[in-house]
Design a protein around this nucleic acid. Structure first.
Lengths: 241, 241
DNA sequence: TTCGCTTACTTGTTATAACAAGTTGTTTTA
DNA sequence: TAAAACAACTTGTTATAACAAGTAAGCGAA
């Protein structure tokens, strides 16, 4: 009546949540589970796939299925990402960013609009960065940078964190207009982040403005939905100072 | 040597994204796809499952597999949720909330801490609400309400939107401390929201404070990750007015 | 001792098969 | 005519089977 694979994955789920299986531990092998539940391999694999989809376990070919640690890394959005490195340090996390792409390209139409580019400057700088958390790929940043900044700071932007670096140059980002949502890893993302096709990702999409209300960056930060979260504090509007 | 199910789902994915298959349209049936790709049913089903996991299609038993609409409903976090109804109206969305549970319970420990309850008032009001978007379940709100408010406004809270109602009563929420993250539908959620086990959900978790810095609500809003997003504007810290 | 092979485990992919269950339209029956 | 039964489709669940591929440990040869 109720499906076998659901009965099994629910039972395993309870055992994981109540600590019968601890994070890092290995689940019994498919063969063992087949015997103890007296079902076929396809059913066991379906049950395990349910657990994977719920983010409770991860499987590694040739090794086994392992219970996940369920602690997330927090991005703080209270001030616009200037203190990202400090935040990570505070959480005791080894946060490394690796430059993948940095090139001048013809601006896509939506970027042109968002960055308010004139027809005479049809190019932007595109940067892609990979974030490693404790040596594990955790996310990807795709940023479009206004041409004058991209050209001036081409070297430094490839080595340093964007927001703190710009701040040090006296380029103060006053406001981020942003959207947070969920997507799914496509082929490219699943290869970069070493996750399954369709793995849930958190997307932080933003446009960054200076005090003069000039848009200078448009970015998209995609990170593993099972490993990251965003914290923010929302206050009632106050009249301008 | 790349896997068959990935080759197939990638091909279908391209066709969906380039408009060969339009949202609302039906994919060819498993039998037809088996024939045209000359693979077994298990491979076709795996390929379709990839598309489901990428949020591109949805399957209905007995009917077929249909291409999803990929437009999301936006929750605006610019001011703390007072204008939710107006926001939805502006997006042309039929937003209905249905009370599921409203009861006085013994406060769980973490809620007790978050709401700063004294040992003499060990109870809180627990409310669960289901949100329907255009008559489709879209999310669930779980809210813990400080006992005095819960008792005083028991009737109204079950009928009206929490934030606008409190505002009208002169209870002004000044600040929300919140976290946005991704989870996965467990059994209960998948039944409420009519989605698969493990379906990605967006979680908005918050504590609401009055101007006197008193926490009065703790809530958790879980909504379908494929249907919702949150927008926010982040400004640089300004000195208090 | 160390390198490389074999072996025995693990999970991953794919095929074939049978039946369950939901949907829809047609046909039969009361 | 209207309700019930049926047929022909759809996707969903489960079983059996074979082989691929990754891991790890042991064993033997250089």
């Amino acid at each position: 009546m109720t499906k076998l694979h659901i009965l099994i994955s629910e039972k395993l789920r309870r055992q994981i949540l109540n600590g019968t299986y601890q994070p890092g531990e290995q689940l019994p092998s498919e063969r063992q589970l087949m015997e103890s539940f007296e079902v076929s391999r396809i059913t066991i694999r379906r049950a395990i796939s349910n657990l994977v989809n719920q983010g409770l376990v991860e499987s590694q070919q040739g090794k086994g299925v392992f219970i996940n640690h369920r602690q997330k890394v927090t991005y703080s959005l209270s001030s616009p990402l200037i203190f990202l490195e400090q935040d990570m340090q505070r959480q005791g996390i080894d946060f490394v960013s690796r430059n993948l792409v940095f090139e001048e390209i013809l601006a896509p139409k939506d970027v042109k609009v968002a960055l308010n580019l004139s027809p005479e400057e049809p190019s932007v700088y595109l940067q892609k960065k990979l974030f490693l958390i404790n040596n594990d790929p955790g996310g990807i940043d795709v940023t479009y940078i206004v041409p004058d900044l991209g050209k001036t700071y081409a070297q430094e932007l490839q080595q340093k964190m964007t927001f703190p670096f710009l701040e040090k140059q006296g380029i103060r980002i006053e406001r981020l207009d942003s959207v947070l949502e969920c997507t799914y890893a496509d082929r490219e993302m699943s290869e970069y982040l070493e996750v399954n096709l369709g793995h849930p990702l958190l997307v932080f999409r933003y446009t960054a403005f200076t005090a003069e209300n000039r848009p200078i960056l448009q970015g998209e930060s995609l990170s593993r939905g099972d490993r990251f979260c965003y914290s923010l504090s929302i206050s009632r509007d106050r009249p301008p100072v």
